[in-house]
Structure formats: C-alpha cells, structure tokens
Simulated scan of single mutants.
Amino acid sequence: MVQNSKKINILLADDHHLVRDGIKSLLGKYNEFNVVGEGADGTAIIQILQTTETPIDLVLADINMPNMSGLELSAKIADQYPVTKVLMLSMLDHEKYVSQALQSGAKGYLLKSVNEDELVFAIKQVVSNSFYVCSELTHQLLTKSLFRTSGIKSKPGNGVKVDFTSREIEILELIAEGFTNLEIADKLFTSKRTVEGHRLQMIAKTGVRNTAALVKFCITNGVLNYV
C-alpha cells in the first residue's frame, strides 16, 4: 500500500502576472506542490490568509510590490501566521536585502535566476523548518564577508599561512553548523564524494587530525568568525 504524502500548499506574491504564471506552471509539474492562491501584493496575500480554510505552508514572495512589500508581508505573516513560512524570490542580490528579509521573519532567499532544481529544493527545505539562501548568493555573501575580515588566509602559531578557497569556506560553514557530507552535497548541488574531498583537503592543509579539530582551528584562527 502506497502512502500519500501531504501536499505543500503555496501562495504566490508577485506584482508581475507573467512571473506568477511561470512559477505556477513550473510547480504544477510536481505532485507534492499545490498553488492554492496568488496576489500582486502583500495585501492580497493577507486577505487570502484571513479567509481561506486551507492551511498555507509557504508564501513565495517578491520583495518589491506595491501597497505592501514582501518585507512587510513577511513580518505580518511571522506575527499573525507563524506556521506559514515565507521564502523570498527576488532580483535584488545585495546582502542588505537578504539580511532585511531574514530579520523580517522570512526563512529563505532566492534570486529569480535560480534553476528549477534549486527552487524545488529550497521550498522543501524551508517548509521543513530549515533556512535556505540560494547557492549563488551564499557564495557571493561569504566571499564578501571573508575578504572584509581577511578570513580566507589564516596564520596559525607556527607561522604557516593556510589558504582556503571560497568553496572550502562554504563547506566549512555547513560543517560547523553540523550538516553531514550528504546534506552538504544536497545543499550545494554537488556530490558527497566532492564534499568529502574538500573536507580531507582542508584537514591536510591545516594539519589537524579530524573534522572537529578542523572547525576548532578555523574558529580559533578567524576563518569562521563570521558564523
């Protein structure tokens, strides 16, 4: 006997009708997704939430919308409908918008340039109560942060500089958050073998014995001081 899984009920908030139609068409290919409503601004979405009897799992929202922006919408949902998650889908790639979105209560941030696989993955992650920022932005934000803090190069007590690539830093952050190799591979859209290779390479670079020692080394030497 096959057990049917619960569908993820989604609302779309975007002031461009063609964008909403495109997302509906894309998500319509997946049995686990159910787009139950849409609106051109935050006000329309709040009205749907106030009147629908269908439990809404996720609101996929743009930031720039008339009447009520995505940030305002996110804050209202976090306050009034805490079970409903908000995932931002925006053209805005500046770090301040990511920060504002997460501070407003959104659980994730995607650029509209993401591919179908990452959009589907992000929705599932956010609905499962995980945070998600698209891989393009994660790489960009981490690189900026690391160069600001000079964190890519670390100088341990023996005077030997250790250089980490931006991809290694990306993996380091996820390791420090407790994710497994397989989970990291899923998040970064790469293979478990590749992640393990980066992990072993970082252990070799630092001369430590294991992953726990690697994380300790990187925190101690300022590589992970932004986490």
Rank of each mutant, 00 (worst) to 15 (best):
D41W: 09
K205N: 07
K153W: 12
Q50T: 13
G178Q: 04
A212S: 12
V195C: 03
R167M: 10
A213Y: 10
G105P: 06
N221V: 10
H198A: 11
V35C: 08
V86T: 00
G42E: 08
D163Q: 09
D163Y: 14
E168K: 05
V208E: 02
T149V: 12
Q103D: 14
C218A: 09
A213S: 15
L142P: 00
Q3N: 13
N64I: 06
I175S: 03
S154D: 09
K29R: 03
P82A: 00
Q103R: 13
F217G: 05
T52F: 10
F179I: 00
H17F: 08
K107V: 10
L111V: 14
K29S: 00
V223Y: 08
H198M: 06
R199E: 12
I175K: 02
V208F: 13
N181G: 05
Y30D: 06
A13G: 06
F131W: 08
D163W: 15
S69A: 04
V19E: 00
L110T: 05
G42F: 01
I123M: 05
F121Y: 15
V120N: 13
M202N: 02
D117A: 14
K112A: 10
V59M: 01
K76A: 08
M1T: 14
L26H: 02
D14L: 12
V19G: 00
H198F: 01
E183D: 12
V162Y: 05
K216F: 09
A78L: 04
E170I: 08
Q140D: 03
I171P: 00
H198D: 12
F217D: 09
G37D: 04
L71V: 15
G157R: 12
L110E: 01
Y30H: 11
N158R: 08
A13Q: 09
E173R: 04
V83Q: 11
R209H: 01
K205W: 07
S128T: 12
S104L: 13
I123E: 05
I8L: 07
L182N: 14
E95R: 06
L87K: 05
G151R: 07
S113I: 09
M88V: 15
V86H: 01
S74H: 11
K6E: 13
V227A: 07
N4F: 12
K7H: 00
L142D: 08
V83E: 15
T165N: 06
T143I: 10
R209W: 08
Q103L: 07
E118L: 04
A212G: 10
T194V: 01
I45R: 07
N210G: 03
I123C: 03
T54I: 14
C134H: 02
D186H: 03
K85V: 10
V2P: 15
L146R: 08
N9D: 06
N34M: 06
V114Y: 09
K144N: 13
R199F: 10
G157T: 02
L102K: 00
E196C: 02
I56S: 03
V133Q: 02
Q3K: 12
T43A: 12
T220L: 11
F217H: 08
L26D: 05
L182I: 10
F217A: 07
G108P: 01
Q3E: 15
I184K: 07
D14A: 15
P55Y: 05
K7P: 00
K187P: 03
Q201P: 03
L214H: 04
I175E: 04
Q125M: 14
